[in-house]
Design a protein around this nucleic acid. Structure first.
Length: 817
DNA sequence: ACTGTGTTA
DNA sequence: TCAATAACACAGT
């Protein structure tokens, strides 16, 4: 405990150095003299405004940590125990809760044997077509990430490759600049075999004995060539070899069963090497065991520091402290932490979605006159407008970013009702924001060193369509006059700019000028008329957009046939909304059914929100067992709800009360565990018997009693994402159950053996009271599915996409994403 | 829902 | 190394 306090109150110097990124946990710094560099930078920056600001920021972080530690002090043993149970079961319920919705989808999400290869190019290369061409040979769907990284799934390539003749795996050293390449070649071979887990001894041997006339004729002798094997490692070596031969760029790579691990792998042998984590559970855990959390993508210096204050440095500690983390951090965060500690990551390479914002910003030496600032602002708007138009984007929100000479950053945003894209349109908004800021420091000048403009809130593709349709139909229909009468002029003004300059500053002339600017490229020889027309035009578009949205939707698309993921009936519909309505209907129908089936107990419901998810799960599982026919529907409804928005989860929680009070309030720990195990059918026999044999038995029993709905259609083997072992069953119900078991394994063990509990000082003798206690009203409710907000101690993470998708409504997009 | 700040890559 | 760009989480309103 004292250690943690010390860590939290770490000195300012430490903090600043941390902030400045001088922390050698990340690869690449190992060889450098950290102390020396720190000193140099300290000397260079001490006393500067920059340095002062870094200090300030660091103190803010320290405050956050302090707050967190205070919170931690208040955490009771009871809460921790409760959290221990919940964190794991809620976690798995949510993460794998989508189960039955779509067999194929799930199977793909959980099981594929992926090999993902991020390539980190050493030099900042124009990773031009050439490279890309090479990568596409191994995975046509490879995903470039930024300029210097790409993920590819070479699973299929590996299969094909097994049958390839050797010549197809033979590559030549570049012969054009012989001397250099020879040298490179030697370096390459040396590096290839250096420090790699299972480098192939065959590589660079055996080649000399083969002579081939064809090669000789082309001036390519086998001495100048390499044959690569058929393993994943060999493939990646081949890729790196080819890239280097073609582009002179070296790359490091990682091979692992998911993106997160692959990324960390590629970090391992950074300069010019590769590393592989085999997809066995133990290999993953070994890799993670002593891995500093800082290495995990998404965990930056702040998160690192905060976790360090809790005594967490490695990924395994992240797992050990999961109960505490679930109390101190937001749900998104701690689930991400748990994901990390279990080595779970995304196994499919999703195309990154549509962009959400576009911005441009510039740093400069101090600018403090309003005139310069406005000019600069206009310039930024011009640049941004160009970029926007290149991608054909229009956005509703304009954000101005300012950094003053003290390095303090401010952003000011304004959302307008009609989306903007031209220089004038953007500037019209941005200049107001800028004006407000200038005014706010008046009579002092606004002294800035950075200005940026961002546009966000883009129309979605569909919205674009409607708008275009609306505008064109509007123009054609010639109903302007009728519409004009509906909208008084004043509201038109406000329609365009919410922060209308007229409202707080800006004179009449300002308005005039702004209007002129806006109109300059539009139309209208007559100024006043032009202004009117301009605004009216915008407003009309909006009006039409809103009014016609529904009808446009209905008329827009040809009828298509979808299969409802809930009732599995084919739905012929001409738009998504209709379909979604159907699905919602299906889902709520299920809810109603559930409600009727389960007796409601209001008094206990209020007292037991914390256990809902667990019992929800039980509830489902029990019926999976007892009534396979009905099960298909109810299970799906439950699980779809699981993955849906907080709203619907909440609703779900309220509608579905749990079981009888006796079960809800077990009198002691072992009762809880026993109940849990029996209800969830996780451990048919004695829970302390926690071995692999168990899984098989479980599967055999359940495999026979499960509905066909849950059978995977494909012949793909299911691989448990937790233990990474291939499962014999093709039945998703039993497969999911296996995953449950895996996830709960450690927990159950801990609870039964009463050891390995995060902080050993917690008194387990309290356990008898823990659960009744935590059901009382006064207790802090930490149930995530109830939407309880925690204080902002959270760290963000790149899983957000995951989080988002599991938060999306039960719309069809979710299933066909 | 929108805005503003902070973290991360 | 540093600036620029983008995404996202969270909190406050």
């Amino acid at each position: 405990m004292d250690d943690m306090k010390k860590a939290a109150n770490s000195s300012c110097n430490d903090g600043v150095l941390l902030r400045m990124g001088l922390n050698d946990n990340k690869a690449g710094m190992q060889g450098l003299d950290k102390e020396k560099i720190n000193k140099i930078i300290m000397d260079a920056t001490k006393g500067s405004r920059f340095y002062e600001n870094e200090l300030k920021k660091d103190q803010q972080v320290n405050q956050r940590i302090e707050k967190m530690m205070q919170l931690k002090e208040k955490v009771t043993t009871q809460q921790l125990l409760k959290a221990q149970l919940q964190s794991t079961s809620n976690y798995h319920a949510r993460r794998f809760g989508v189960r039955a919705a779509m067999p194929g989808f799930i199977a793909k999400r959980l099981c594929p044997h992926l090999t993902i290869v991020p390539l980190n190019f050493e030099k900042y290369g124009k990773v031009s077509k050439e490279v890309r061409e090479i990568l596409a040979e191994y995975d046509p769907n490879f995903m470039p990430m930024g300029l210097d990284e790409a993920y590819l799934n070479i699973t299929e390539h590996l299969e094909e490759r097994l049958n390839w003749p050797e010549d197809r795996r033979r590559f030549f050293f570049n012969t054009e600049s012989t001397t250099r390449i020879d040298k490179d070649g030697m370096n390459m071979s040396a590096k290839f075999n250096e420090g790699e887990v299972s480098s192939s001894p065959v590589l660079f041997e055996d080649n000399t004995s083969l002579m081939d006339d064809g090669f000789e004729q082309r001036g390519l002798s086998v001495e100048n060539s390499v044959v690569f094997g058929t393993s994943a490692e060999e493939v990646v070596k081949e890729i790196r070899f080819r890239i280097e031969q073609k582009t002179q760029l070296t790359a490091s790579a990682g091979i692992a069963p998911n993106t997160m691990l692959a990324k960390m792998c590629s970090d391992r042998n950074k300069p010019n090497g590769q590393y592989r984590i085999s997809p066995e559970r133990q290999a993953v855990l070994d890799f993670l065991k002593d891995l500093p959390i800082r290495k995990v993508p998404g965990i930056g210096k702040v998160t690192e520091k905060m976790l360090k204050a809790l005594g967490i440095v490695t990924c395994s500690e992240l797992y050990q402290q999961r109960a505490l983390l679930s109390l101190l951090f937001s749900e998104v965060s701690w689930r991400n932490f748990l994901d990390i500690s279990l080595g779970l990551g995304s196994t499919h390479l999703e195309k990154d979605g549509e962009r959400k914002s576009m911005s441009t910003e510039r740093t400069f030496s101090e600018i403090n006159t309003a005139e310069d600032q406005y000019n600069l602002c206009r310039e930024l708007c011009r640049d941004l407008a160009q970029d926007l138009q290149k991608e054909g984007l229009k956005g509703k929100t304009v954000t101005l970013k300012l950094k003053n000479v003290n390095f303090e950053v401010k952003t000011r945003a304004s959302t307008v009702l009609s989306s903007v894209s031209t220089e004038e349109e953007i500037f019209a908004v941005a200049k107001d924001l800028l004006g407000t800021e200038i005014d706010s420091v008046a009579p002092h000048p606004l002294r800035i060193r950075l200005m940026g403009v961002r546009v966000s809130g883009f129309l979605t593709e569909e919205e674009k369509k409607y708008q275009q349709r609306s505008i064109t139909s509007f123009l054609k229909s010639g109903k302007e006059i009728g519409f004009l009468r509906l909208q008084p002029e004043k509201s038109n003004q406000e329609y365009f700019t919410k922060n209308s300059e007229a409202s707080h500053r800006g004179s009449f002339f300002d308005q005039k000028r702004a209007a002129r600017q806006l109109n300059s490229e539009n139309i209208s020889p007559n100024e006043s008329r032009g202004k009117q027309l301009f605004h009216d035009d915008k407003s009309s578009a909006n009006f039409v957009e809103e009014r016609k949205k529904v009808t446009d939707l209905q008329n827009s698309n040809a009828r298509e046939i979808f299969t409802c993921p809930v009732c599995f009936e084919e739905q012929s519909s001409n738009n998504l909304e209709e379909l979604n309505r159907h699905i919602d209907g299906c889902l709520s129908g299920m809810h109603v059914k559930d409600t009727v089936e389960i007796s409601k107990n209001d008094s206990s419901r209020e007292n037991t929100p914390n256990f809902l998810p667990q019992f929800k799960n039980e509830h489902v599982d029990e019926r999976e067992k007892n009534n396979t026919d009905q099960l298909a529907g109810t299970d799906q409804s439950a699980n779809v709800s699981d993955s849906s928005t907080n709203n619907s989860t909440e609703k779900f929680g309220q509608i579905i009360p749990d079981k009888s009070p006796r079960e809800r309030q077990p009198s002691n720990l072992s009762d809880i565990v026993r109940n849990m195990c029996m209800k969830q059918c996780l451990f048919p026999k004695r829970i302390s018997q926690d071995n692999e044999d168990h899984f098989d038995k479980t599967e055999q029993i359940e495999g026979t009693s499960s509905s066909h709905f849950f059978d995977t259609r494909e012949d793909t083997a299911l691989v448990c994402p937790v233990c990474n072992s291939e499962q014999k069953t093709t039945n998703l119900v039993s497969f999911n159950r296996h995953v449950d078991v895996c996830l709960n394994k450690g927990l159950i063990q801990e609870l039964t053996e009463k050891e390995d509990f995060p902080t050993k000082t917690y008194n387990m003798e309290n356990s008898n009271r823990v659960f009744s206690g935590c059901l009382s009203k006064g207790q802090q409710c930490a149930n995530p599915s109830q939407g309880t907000k925690r204080s902002g101690l959270t760290a963000s993470q790149s899983v957000s996409k995951k989080a988002k998708s599991s938060n999306s409504k039960h719309t069809i997009e979710m299933f066909f994403k």
